[in-house]
Design a protein around this nucleic acid. Structure first.
Lengths: 187, 187
DNA sequence: CCTCCAAAAGTGAACGTTCACTCACATTCA
DNA sequence: TGAATGTGAGTGAACGTTCACTTTTGGAGG
């Protein structure tokens, strides 16, 4: 047989590119097949449906990033952890901005359908803040608000980059943003 | 003739509800007409197309909010202005969460099509930060990063509310968030 | 005060297009 | 050889939009 995984790779790339630039609903299976250089029917040899492709693309990458985020637990102390998290998020963005944009774009629809398990980056971040709070490293009382604010500081720069309101790689900004997170948690 | 503005109101409400809960592409004109209690053809007496409805709904509300945001210029000093901005944003959300969610949801597509004029809330915020920077009220050097971070602090709580990661009205949180914005701009 | 009318507003079946998906068949390779 | 993979014309459903027609209305003319 031919190399199935190679075909899947081509589908992945085409899907990420088109989904993140046009949106999922605005991308047809025809567009997808053409961009990947395959026939429409071929896509259905690898995925049960268009929705299945979207879900697989989202959930696998979302869970993989949550896993990487969980490794930050090896770092000691909230301040250093925030540095590590910011560097991880921004490095992840810089390594594959298209993937990052896709995850941001699709989470609205995907999370509404109950993809809210433990392999969720937000859940990992929240757990980290709760742990720091228990250790007396966080002044802010509401952990949910704290989580939302840190998330805002981490994600909005990426969004600004999409709209052209910011330029260049994000990684150099990570220590600045990590500091802002720290001061937000500790007024 | 019958009351045309009343029909438009019904269309507006149905459109905001459906668009913000399901998404624009996932809402058909049939759904829209049924929810508004009108016939499909009626919608086209008031809007040239579905896209026209979306654009009108977005641009008018987006510009109106930018206008309200511009009134904050009457407040003196960055610290007080941040308080006013946070209260305005959170109050706007609490008054009509559905509208707020719609604006968040649609801006991705709408702003890509070049709806980036002066009547843009982000432009207003950026101008405010630039002005404060000139007055020596902001330590952070990059105005674009500063703008992105403040935007993140203001918008993410609303997003968290959509996902059920936060509850209750946002307005009571505005002074806390405004303080976080201030500390982010002035390390 | 009533009558009538043109224009505004409302209607929903029908239209052509596009969509996601299927299937009978071709190709490849272990 | 047969199982895996690739193909693209074909399919029915759903979509946005149109249009011939009805209903409603404010105001002009008697």
């Amino acid at each position: 047989m031919r190399d199935a995984s190679h075909t899947r790779q081509k589908i992945h790339r085409a899907a990420l590119d088109l989904f993140s630039s046009r949106g999922v609903a605005e991308t047809s299976v025809r567009d997808l097949a053409q961009a990947a250089g395959i026939a429409e029917g071929t896509l259905y040899r690898h995925y049960a449906s268009k929705d299945d492709l979207v879900a697989d693309l989202f959930l696998s990458n979302y869970a993989a990033f949550a896993e990487r985020l969980r490794t930050v637990r090896a770092v000691a102390g909230l301040r250093a952890r925030l540095d590590a998290v910011a560097a991880l998020v921004f490095g992840f963005h810089d390594a594959d901005p298209t993937l990052f944009r896709f995850l941001l774009l699709v989470q609205h629809q995907a999370l509404a359908r109950g993809g809210d398990g433990d392999d969720n980056p937000v859940t990992v971040l929240r757990a980290m803040i709760l742990e720091a709070q228990a250790a007396g490293e966080v002044t802010m009382t509401d952990p949910d608000l704290a989580c939302a604010l840190v998330l805002g500081l981490l994600l909005q720069p990426a969004t600004a980059l999409v709209y052209g309101r910011l330029s260049g790689p994000l990684l150099p900004l990570s220590s600045t943003v990590a500091a802002a997170c720290w001061r937000t948690l500790n007024p």
